[in-house]
Nucleic acid binder design. Structure first.
Length: 206
DNA sequence: GCGACAG
DNA sequence: ATCTTGTCGC
């Protein structure tokens, strides 16, 4: 297991956060939307990217990328652990998504650079963060989440936190996530999560 | 110093 | 997130 240099990692997050775009810079109308998630099995990290038709909200195809997991999970540094499995799966897709939902926070992060944002900036892809539990920030009476005096996210429910990832406005992020909701759960990441767990048992040795 | 802390 | 079976409830 690698040990992160938290000092440098935090510096990188703060530095790269200057590149985040919080305006809509994705293809309209959206035709393809992706959902990415990572599961773990022994020494392996299994990244899955699922592509769905945006209008119909129906699955089209998916890709799997398995790699050895060497970075530990440390709160607020999740991206360093999951970015390669996620990026590997995304880059294997034959259909390029217009926007991607990531199972983590985007700008709802102490240094404004959660995993969803990190992935978006590194791959220069429009991303939205969809997490199941809070990390930081204050929720106002309307449900909006503020971090460092900036409105960057929205608490849709106690189990769903939406935030700007990269190249998308908060308003659009909320609208897009609502569009692909199925039983209060975003369908793209739900399918990616199911597939990633399914793949865990298809790994032969250890 | 103490507690909290995405997946 | 992972390690793990059955079981309670709508």
């Amino acid at each position: 297991m690698v040990r992160l240099n938290l000092k440098k990692a935090a510096y990188l997050q703060r530095k790269l956060s200057e590149l985040v775009i919080t305006k809509d810079m994705f293809n309209k109308p959206i035709k393809y939307i992706a959902g990415v998630d990572v599961a773990y099995r022994k020494k392996y990290a299994i990244g899955v990217a699922y592509i769905l038709d945006y209008d119909k909200v129906e699955p089209l195809t998916y890709s799997v990328y398995i790699v050895e997991s060497k970075v530990p999970y440390i709160p607020t540094y999740l991206a360093f652990r999951e970015i390669w499995p996620m990026a590997g799966a995304l880059l294997k897709l034959k259909i390029k998504p217009d926007i991607t939902l990531v199972d983590s926070h985007g700008l709802i992060h102490p240094r404004g650079f959660g995993a969803a944002t990190h992935l978006g900036v590194v791959l220069n892809l429009p991303t939205i963060g969809v997490a199941k539990s809070p990390l930081v920030g204050k929720v106002d009476k309307d449900g909006y989440i503020h971090v460092n005096n900036k409105r960057v996210g929205y608490k849709f429910s106690p189990k769903l936190y939406i935030s700007i990832g990269h190249r998308v406005s908060l308003e659009s992020a909320i609208e897009i996530v609502k569009h692909v909701l199925r039983n209060s759960i975003p369908e793209p990441t739900r399918l990616a999560h199911i597939k990633a767990n399914e793949m865990k048992y298809k790994i032969s040795m250890e």
